[in-house]
Amino acid sequence: MLQFNTMAIAIAAQAAWRKSIRPTLFQDVVLLPLLGILGVLLLWWFVAAFVSELLPTPLEALLANLDYITHPFYRRGPGDLGIGWLLLASLRRVFLGFLLGSLVAIPVGFLIGMSRKALLAINPLIQIFRPVSPVAWLPIALAIFNLANPSAIFVIFITSLWPTIINTALGVSSVSQDYLDVARVLEMSRWRQITKIILPASLPYIFTGLRISLGIAWLVIVAVEMLTGGIGIGFFVWDEWSRLNLNSVFLAILVIGSTGLVLDYLLGRLQVLVTHRSPSST
C-alpha cells in the first residue's frame, strides 16, 4: 500500500514536471500532502506546549537534532556513533535474518504448495506460530546463542518465515492450469516444470510474501534492539528515552519510517526487474 502511494506520487510528480505544474496536480502532489504534515506538526506543537513538560516543540526538536542530521556518520568514541551507523547496524541484522528466513521459507512454501502431505504436516505449526509476536522468541534465542546479536538475527529469521511461506504456498498451488497444460504437452520433467513454469509463475506471490516479511522484520527489529541493547536504531530510541532526550526519539521515528518506505520501494523495484510485471498487475 505504501509502495503504491509512493509510486503514485512519483508518477504524478513526473507528470506535473512535464506539464508545467497544472493547478490540480500541484494540489494533489504538493498542497494536500503538505496540509497533512502541517496538521500533525500543529498537533505535536499543541501537545508539547500545553500537555507534556518533556516533549520538545517541532522547532526545538529540529534545532536539537541539527548535529545528528548534518553528521550522520560521526564516531566520537565507543558507543557514541552517528545515526547513520546505528541505522546500518539495524539494517545488517534485518538483512541477515530476512535472507536466512527467506532461504528457508521459499522452499518450505514450495513443498506445502505442491504436496498435500507436507501441507498437513506443516500447516498446524504455521497456524500456531504465526500469531505469536516474534519478540516472544527472544528468550529462547538468548538461551541458545548467549549473545545479543545472533539472537536478534534469529528473531528476524522467525519473523520472516510465516508470510513468505504462506504466500509462496498460495502462489505455487494456484499456478494456472493453462501453464501446466503447456508444460505437460511439451513433456517437461517434474524438475523442469518446477524451475521453468511453477517458480516464475509464483514469483509475484513470493514477492508479496517477501515484502510483508521485510515490513514486519523492520517493525520487529526496533523492539528487539530495545530489549537486547547494543548498537542499533532501536536501542538508540530506548537509550535516548532513558536520558529523557525526546528530540532524538522524534528523529529516530522519522528515520525508521523513511527507511521502511525505501526498503519496500527497493523490493518492489526488484520484483519488477525479476518478474517483468508491475506489482499492481498481479
Partner: peptide
C-alpha cells in the same frame, strides 16, 4: 490454446 496460454514472464 483458446486462451493463448503464453507464459507472461
Amino acid at each position: 490454446f483458446q486462451q493463448y496460454s503464453l507464459l507472461p514472464w
